[in-house]
Amino acid sequence: MEQTISFTINDEQRTMVIHPGQSLLELIREDLGLTGAKQGCGVGECGACAVLVNGQAVDSCLYLAAWADGKTVVTVEGLSQYGELTNMQKAFVEGGAVQCGFCTPGIIMTATEMEARDRNYTEADIKRALSGHLCRCTGYTKIVEATKKGLENVGKCSCDHE
């Protein structure tokens, strides 16, 4: 049984035929060839598959492709404009928050959602906001620092700095 959906992916309008059992992650990686989002656990625990749906980070491994109908999806590939990384991406690269990089595209999406929200973040808020992501390499300190830096750039960080 097939179904047709129309949605926006990284600023491009697409109409696609999907299978009802397809996850959004499978649609993005296999049908659209966008391999930034990763399949880690497949059960909503690690956040490697996070993408933005209507501006909110969701674990695309546990989200039906059918639900993207009429919505706007952004993956890590859709963040840079004219070949220039976003401030948040730069903060991760420059802050050494990327080692093997498997967790990075997902974490960047959550951090990007934070950037867009109308609020300020303390360090505790940042840790809580990143709690749906696992990283096996960095030990998190540099990820939290980079997120802080990225949020500082848009005036959304209220952490204490030494």
Binding site: G47, V58, D59, T110
Partner: peptide
């Protein structure tokens, strides 16, 4: 509950 990506859906 869960983390932000879970709470979003």
């Amino acid at each position: 509950i869960g983390g932000p990506q879970i709470r979003n859906v």
